[in-house]
């Protein structure tokens, strides 16, 4: 068991950096900070004895997703100052939403605390100390079919969305 302070510091850093990621007007900064959030989450996953998930998070979410975000941002036109002002939601509305969300969060945390949760219910029909690879390939193989279908859907969507308009080229 690691020191509890490491977890507290990591969680605080994750929350603060995610707030920074959403509050920047320039999305490129937000995308870079999102990569940092992913990196911190992967450290948390390592501490929570999920090393495989941590590696996935670090390589895919912190690496690939940040690269995709930056390439999307660089390929789209940056909004000018006038457009940015039009796009931004009024400060008053933002504040009202923030107060509302804090109230909802506070109420739900109060309810959670009053329930005095001290355990996570065990899942039924799960073998003890089964390896992650065995778990994925043998126990949850239906999920793998779903995963393959989702990947194929993504592939199909990318082919359709990035297809060149032939009629436009003829004109």
């Amino acid at each position: 068991m690691d020191s509890i302070y490491i977890h507290i510091i990591l969680l605080a850093l994750i929350i603060i950096s995610s707030i920074f990621a959403v509050s920047y007007a320039r999305v490129i900064r937000g995308a870079i900070i999102l990569g940092i959030v992913s990196m911190l989450v992967s450290i948390s996953l390592f501490l929570l004895s999920c090393p495989l998930a941590g590696i996935f998070e670090l390589s895919v979410c912190s690496g690939l997703i940040t690269v995709i975000f930056i390439s999307v941002i660089s390929l789209t036109l940056p909004p000018d100052e006038k457009q940015r002002k039009v796009n931004s939601v009024s400060m008053m509305k933002k504040m009202v939403l923030l107060v509302l969300l804090v109230l909802v969060c506070g109420f739900s945390l109060y309810m959670l605390d009053s329930k005095n949760i001290t355990f996570v219910p065990l899942m039924q029909n799960v073998q003890e100390s089964i390896d992650t690879r065995d778990n994925i390939w043998n126990l949850r193989h239906v999920d793998l079919i779903g995963q393959a279908l989702i990947l194929l859907t993504g592939l199909f969507a990318v082919v359709v969305l990035f297809k060149k308009d032939k009629n436009k080229d003829k004109k």
Partner: peptide, 10 residues
């Protein structure tokens, strides 16, 4: 049982 959680996270 972190193995179960790992597969879901992946």
């Amino acid at each position: 049982r972190p193995e179960m959680a790992q597969s879901f996270i992946i």
